[in-house]
Design a protein around this nucleic acid. Structure first.
Length: 658
RNA sequence: GCACCAUUAGCUCAGCUGGCAGAGCAACUGACUCUUAAUCAGUGGGUCCUGGGUUCGAAUCCCAGAUGGUGUACCA
């Protein structure tokens, strides 16, 4: 028993040798003494609490003179010899306990004085006010309900280290009162949203977290496995397609508040699991959803902001009084950058204008819609501090949304932006099954071209739509971000009780099987693009260059045939493959190329490729890349297509291309 | 991957140009019958993240690494 305690209480579990801090040892000794005296606190099973501390403090006039029983944790002690004070903290707050030897006798007083900061006690006594005016309880009887065996963090500064606060949230909750307040508000916010939806006669439903096809959002899923069925399942990335099936089923108004899982990066705004509210309402459209979004945000805000719709977030005043501003995406871009997409004719022109404005991240394969979105993110999004609905998204990035009548490249979709961040996303839901099937096919093409975030085709969903879905508006609101906004917390980790954390030390490796099978599963089926039948009517290529290059200049570009000696994925990179090449010179050439989405590394070993070898060395992920391997790129149905040039193996390494 | 910052007692943190490892809280002993970051006197508590190096001497300077944070990048 004692030995186990010592091991478990070891402050540093990595030390196999026992080394218990003196403070812990002293508390263990006190516990042992109590147990030996037949007063084991851990044998206590209940305590009849009559009042919470805050009720006593707030309603002192009524409580004064009454005998109450409170229970909680000792937070601080102030001994005065034959009298002592301590603060007792319960769920509602704190109250001072006044203990006097005259009231309880020498023996009891000595026991009471043995208690430590952190111990859980029940105290019975009269409510009164001390000479200095502090509302207190005169301790007449007490029970130790649990012994604390470790010292609490410091009483004045609290627990500061953010990492420890997230990992040991219980300590954070004990010593940092504002943390408890944040999570109380989180509960109120969710309750307010639920109440508003119930007032509007919505039905709360639950749909599967384990999906065969993770649909409804462009995101990479987590993979898990069902043993009995021997079946890989995916954690849902969105409940959207299930909720719309329920609209087909005639439920008319449904919502779900629950966790989504996305296997993507983490940031101050992103946690791998996060809480979404999704709502679907038949017989309305995205205009209806704007009104609903306003109502939900306002109700949540008032619930935690003393009824006001004006908040302060990170020192900036934000007015959540409806109606929120409304602007189309292209108007927003024009307003904040001067670029007018309504007069832009093709992707080439869009790219050129965007480049002139200094937009980064432009890729050749992008269409007009992609460029518009990029410009929006660059110029407009950070400026949208006050709540703003941004309307009419490009069709390329909205595969579940109705087209805008008369403007088939746009969709009836909006996102709500506040403080430069996305808070909600809503559509006039696409209910045309034939159109939906086409959109899925376009997404699958994108996926087969290597975009593992593209939507997956869900035939069962299309079948559901083909039974007829009424015109429907759908809205999703990120609960965590809303809580951040309404509680003035800058990080999503501050509004999640237990945010996802990297394990400490080297324990990560122990749990992980080194198998690459998951990796294999993910990439298989995406390759190669060459085996996919392309609809040539949907292929677009870059216009030919008008400017001529003289032969002298051309021949200075050293294109060589190379053999792939080795090819491997660059660790931690989403895109890069690292090639080790024989270029005929006798020295290995290392080239990095961002085509992991299109090819599996091991499939390329031994292939004969073309590389340009006299480009300046460029570091990617810290690895110098000596040139580029050459691919054919084109656009297919708005998505990037890419084929590495693979040559006949009979061509020798180092052969120059003219 | 890169850049910057951090890592010193259970907690919060000082520690300058290299010279005995420090404070407050917490703990322990004692005093104190109305304190409230109680006070007063005393005591104990350290792998200065790890490993190298420079030096007569390193918490401090140099190199490498670990962990965490913040920012940034992943580009035919």
């Amino acid at each position: 028993m004692t030995k186990e305690q010592e091991i478990n209480l070891n402050p540093n579990p990595n030390d196999s040798e026992e080394k218990v801090s003196d403070q812990i040892q002293i508390r263990l000794d006190k516990l042992k003494a109590l147990q030996d005296a037949g007063a084991d606190p851990f044998l206590e099973t209940s305590y009849e609490v009559t009042e919470h501390t805050a009720e006593i403090v707030e309603d002192f006039d009524r409580m004064a003179g009454k005998i109450v029983k409170v229970a909680g944790r000792i937070m601080s002690k102030r001994g005065m010899g034959k009298v002592s004070f301590c603060d007792l903290q319960d769920r509602s707050g704190k109250i001072q306990i006044f203990t006097r030897v005259n009231d309880i006798g020498e023996e009891s007083y000595a026991k009471w004085q043995e208690f430590d900061i952190g111990d859980i006690v029940g105290v019975e006594g009269e409510v009164f006010r001390t000479k200095r005016g502090e509302i207190s309880i005169r301790n007449s009887k007490f029970t130790l309900l649990a012994k604390s065996l470790r010292p609490l963090p410091e009483k004045f500064h609290g627990l500061r280290d953010t990492d420890t606060r997230y990992r040991k949230r219980y300590l954070d909750l004990i010593v940092n009162p504002e943390v408890k307040e944040t999570f109380e508000k989180r509960s109120l916010i969710i309750r307010a949203i639920r109440n508003e939806l119930e007032d509007r006669n919505f039905l709360e439903v639950e749909t599967p977290l384990l999906n065969l096809i993770p649909g409804g959002a462009a995101a990479r899923p987590f993979i898990t496995h069902h043993n009995t069925l021997d079946l890989d399942l995916y954690m849902r990335v969105s409940p959207e397609l299930y909720l719309k099936r329920l609209i087909v089923g005639g439920l008319e108004r449904v919502f779900e508040i629950g966790r989504n899982f996305r296997n993507e990066g983490m940031s101050v705004k992103h946690n791998p699991e996060f809480t979404m509210m999704e709502v679907y309402q038949a017989y309305t459209d995205y205009h209806g959803m704007m009104e609903l979004a306003e109502a939900l945000v306002v109700r949540a805000c008032k619930a935690v902001n003393k009824g006001s719709t004006i908040i302060n977030f990170q020192g900036v005043e934000i007015d959540l009084t409806p109606p929120f501003a409304r602007i189309t995406m292209s108007d927003a871009v024009r307003e904040h950058s001067g670029l007018d997409f309504s007069v832009i004719e093709d992707a080439q022109q869009a790219k050129q204008l965007a480049r002139e404005k200094g937009v980064e991240g432009i890729e050749e394969h992008m269409g007009v819609g992609d460029i518009l979105e990029l410009c929006f993110e660059t110029f407009a999004e950070p400026k949208l501090i006050q709540p703003t609905f941004v309307l009419d998204y490009p069709i390329e990035i909205s595969p579940l949304t109705k087209k805008k009548p008369g403007q088939p490249h746009l969709t009836e979709r909006f996102e709500l932006f506040i403080y430069g961040s996305e808070f909600g996303n809503a559509y006039s839901e696409l209910n045309d099954p034939l159109d939906q099937e086409e959109r899925f096919r376009a997404q699958m093409a994108k996926r087969q071209a290597g975009d593992d975030e593209a939507h997956l085709q869900d035939d069962d969903f299309v079948e559901a739509l083909s039974h007829g879905m009424p015109p429907t508006g759908g809205l999703g609101i990120g609960i965590d971000r809303l809580v951040m906004l309404l509680t003035d917390n800058p990080s999503i980790r501050d509004v999640l009780l237990f945010p996802t954390m990297k394990p400490l030390g080297g324990q990560a490796a122990d749990n992980q099987t080194p198998s690459s099978s998951a990796e294999d599963d993910k990439t298989s089926g995406q390759f190669p693009t060459g085996s996919q039948k392309l609809d040539l009517s949907k292929v677009k290529v870059e216009p030919l260059f008008a400017d001529m290059v003289d032969f002298e200049t051309f021949s200075q570009s050293d294109f060589r045939v190379v053999k792939v000696l080795n090819c491997e994925e660059v660790p931690k990179s989403d895109k890069l493959l690292k090639f080790t090449l024989n270029d005929g010179s006798g020295t290995d050439r290392i080239i990095l190329s961002g085509i992991k989405e299109h090819y599996k590394a091991e499939d390329l070993i031994g292939k004969t490729l073309v590389a340009i070898t006299n480009l300046p060395v460029r570091k990617m992920m810290g690895i110098p890349s000596q040139g580029m391997v050459i691919s054919a790129v084109y656009e297919h149905d708005g998505k990037e297509g890419l084929n590495l040039l693979i040559l006949d193996d009979n061509i020798p390494a180092g052969a120059k291309l003219y």
